[in-house]
Design a protein around this nucleic acid. Sequence first.
DNA 1: TGTACATCAGTGAACGCGCGTTCACTGATGTAC
DNA 2: TGTACATCAGTGAACGCGCGTTCACTGATGTAC
Lengths: 242, 242
Amino acid sequence: MRQTVDMAHETRQEARARITGELMAAARRQLAEVGAAGLSLREVAREIGMVSSAVYRYVESRDELLTRLIIESYDALGATAERASAAAAAASPDADLDRWVATAHAIRRWSLDHPHEHLLLYGSPVPGYAAPEDTIGPATRVTFALVGIVGDAAAAGRLAPPAGPPADVSPEFANELATLAAVIEHDVLAIPDTALAVLTAWTQMFGLIGFEITNQTRNMVMDHTALFDATVRRLAHHLGLR
Amino acid sequence: MRQTVDMAHETRQEARARITGELMAAARRQLAEVGAAGLSLREVAREIGMVSSAVYRYVESRDELLTRLIIESYDALGATAERASAAAAAASPDADLDRWVATAHAIRRWSLDHPHEHLLLYGSPVPGYAAPEDTIGPATRVTFALVGIVGDAAAAGRLAPPAGPPADVSPEFANELATLAAVIEHDVLAIPDTALAVLTAWTQMFGLIGFEITNQTRNMVMDHTALFDATVRRLAHHLGLR
DNA sequence: TGTACATCAGTGAACGCGCGTTCACTGATGTAC
DNA sequence: TGTACATCAGTGAACGCGCGTTCACTGATGTAC
């Protein structure tokens, strides 16, 4: 059932690349069906018409397969966010708030379309699996896409100052938030109130998406899109985006 | 190794109750170690010194055990929140904001102390397991504890009106939020802006806790308690609590 | 262009494992008279 | 209070299952001369 398109004069390297691709695609399909904890090497092998031991030519172990899936998922989500952010910026360069909201909707859309991939990234850890360091880098991509919007607004002098009295944080914690700004490499976050507002908007956004995916809001809300839009928009406004 | 305390003149009924308790305790211990997806009936049986088939005298199936654990966990979390809320109200009856924040900290504390139980409730679904209807009721207990604080503040006339311009929501969505108020049986939520603010505060709170548990904020924040306090406090303020 | 050898993809059998669940049984606890 | 029967907790063997991983193998693709 595999595509027969020019498999004939394929070099070994090409075949390897193609089959690796098919294998990962099958793994993603299976992940989408049964979730990460239920993912099985044997089943993946079956799906691409291979004997179970053959997948070891392409993947070191089940753990490595999971790691690859995690990285791919972070990248897919990150790319989605970046695309949405760029498109919004191109369409209407100084509408920072709309850009933030559009990016948020793209993130939500991706998550609802790929619930098990979202859960692989943000849900329960897979029993017996410990994510290696390689997964940290890709993880920051979405976050950077969001923070970048705030950074751009600030750089253009369009970021409104925090409303209300300054947050009552200890000097140590203010200091820590400043360090975070350095890590993130965005001085916007150097203002404690802005840093807090970004962290608030970020966690609320992912919190609501998570609730939606795991059905916590069933019987409570019908129009999830409207709720998401309203809450995200409000927090983006609080954070100074216009 | 079981307690021998008056096991001698125990009635059958008493023994059944005690052993069921031991069984659930063992299941909870195992859940805490390996997580819900890794929970095994046989291992639970082993831990209480029984042959695997014997646990079927106490539990219908693995699924039923999971259901019971879910209900117990929701109840434990709900009770924790209620206790914290009541204690804060008793200590300082009109400090609504502090009461909210104290309750939030209690919820977070419980979650950090019982990460796998938190994930059982709010994390990835267990493969092959579908939660039955019985788990919905207990699930609302925490939510009610929080909403109750806002309700009490409003009833006492202490809830500040929403600051800023009213949220720009469609009539249909405003309507839906009103319906939600009826379901929750708290008219506070009849004001769309307040309802939105409550939903925002609620999802941010659980979002941040989830991020902490699954380690999303590693390398970004050190003092998680300070971050949690600052963000939760701010959103509680926005929602009108003082 | 042709041959000799090395590399590599995929096979099939096997390993040892742990799981949920069923079933016929034994022996102890409870109940009716 | 004593006996006869019914209920129930726990046993031990067995079922069928799917899993991850290893290993010696075959045959095809690539490479050096």
